[in-house]
């Protein structure tokens, strides 16, 4: 299993060049059964990453490009009257897939956003009183433009909490960029990828993630991180218990990727930024360091009093 995992990791990294860290985080997010938010400028490979993930894990893949005139029905689906049977039946929207790439989610209206996010959270869709479960596994990889760009509807904090991680890809390093330019279209490369794992494997892996051992010392560390984020005064509001659970889940997945059956503080620290930063709003005039880095440096790994 871990061999297959390694192989899938390197497959993804072979397509998304020079982004090992982010690829690893994205895979960890999938293993932890969390949704992923990628925040970046257009054209840095968000779509490629999502597509590659889908290929490697042999997931059914769907993509929605969000626009400002989109309605919830465009994603969830509509009830259509079937004159032959004289009844309504549900025409499934693009959300009924295993891995949904929700592109530029902050371009659409809050109404549509919340429709998607609620479906994400509940893993089911209710239309006209009929509830239909979404496929299992089900992941959303949403992308978002930097909030400073015009014409966007930033996701409210409560919605952001539904994403386990937020990562950004950034421009590739110069040599990687050269390779990328020389190597032809990445999307094509992605489409040519063979599936390394099957969706059932992913389900099994997520079960393994849940079994990863978390010692009392580590729980203590995570708890002190939460407490510090609330007490330090650097953030408008601290991390919620849900964030803490997410942090532990992500750290477990990270440990699995590392081939360990227990979590160490490094695992927590590795996922700390992606898991926490989109949930923490710094107060005005706060430290210039990223929230993750700030927490990491300020909270002792080992209890000191």
């Amino acid at each position: 299993m871990s061999k297959a995992l390694r192989q899938s990791l390197s497959s993804v990294a072979g397509v998304v060049l020079g982004k090992e860290e982010q690829v690893r985080l994205a895979v960890a997010c999938l293993l932890a059964r969390g949704h992923l938010l990628i925040e970046d400028l257009p054209g840095v490979g968000k779509t490629t990453l999502a597509q590659t993930l889908a290929r490697v894990f042999s997931l059914q893949y769907g993509r929605v490009q969000f626009t400002s005139d989109m309605l919830p029905a465009d994603i969830l689906g509509v009830s259509v009257y079937d004159p032959d049977n004289r009844e309504f039946h549900l025409k499934e929207g693009p959300i009924f897939t295993q891995l949904l790439l929700a592109d530029e989610i902050n371009r659409t209206t809050p109404k549509t956003q919340s429709a998607l996010l609620e479906a994400m959270e509940e893993r089911q869709v209710t239309l006209d009183g009929v509830t239909r479960p979404l496929p299992d596994p089900f992941f959303v990889v949403a992308t978002q433009n930097p909030v400073t760009q015009t014409g966007t509807f930033p996701l409210p904090e409560s919605q952001l909490d539904r994403f386990l991680m937020r990562i950004s890809l950034g421009y590739p390093a110069p040599e990687m960029e050269r390779e990328l330019l020389a190597g032809g279209d990445r999307r094509e490369a992605a489409e040519q990828l063979e599936g390394v794992l099957q969706p059932q494997d992913l389900v099994k892996l997520s079960r393994a993630v849940e079994k990863v051992h978390v010692s009392a010392d580590l729980v203590d560390y995570v708890q002190r991180i939460l407490e510090y984020s609330r007490a330090c005064g650097e953030f408008v509001s601290g991390l919620s218990p849900r964030a803490g659970l997410g942090l532990l889940r992500a750290a477990r997945a990270w440990a699995v990727l590392d081939g360990r059956d227990y979590v160490i503080p490094e695992d927590v620290q590795a996922v700390l930024g992606p898991v926490c930063e989109h949930r923490l709003q710094p107060v005005a005039g706060g430290s210039a360091l990223g929230a993750g880095q700030q927490l990491l440096e300020a909270v002792p790994v080992v209890r000191g009093s």
Partner: peptide
């Protein structure tokens, strides 16, 4: 164990290394 960790940090700090408390093993 916690004490052991702090002893190690003390040892490194004593050798003039700048180590913030959040540093992991």
């Amino acid at each position: 164990w916690q004490r052991e960790y702090w002893r190690m940090l003390d040892l490194l700090r004593g050798e003039g290394m700048r180590v913030h408390p959040g540093v992991a093993p």
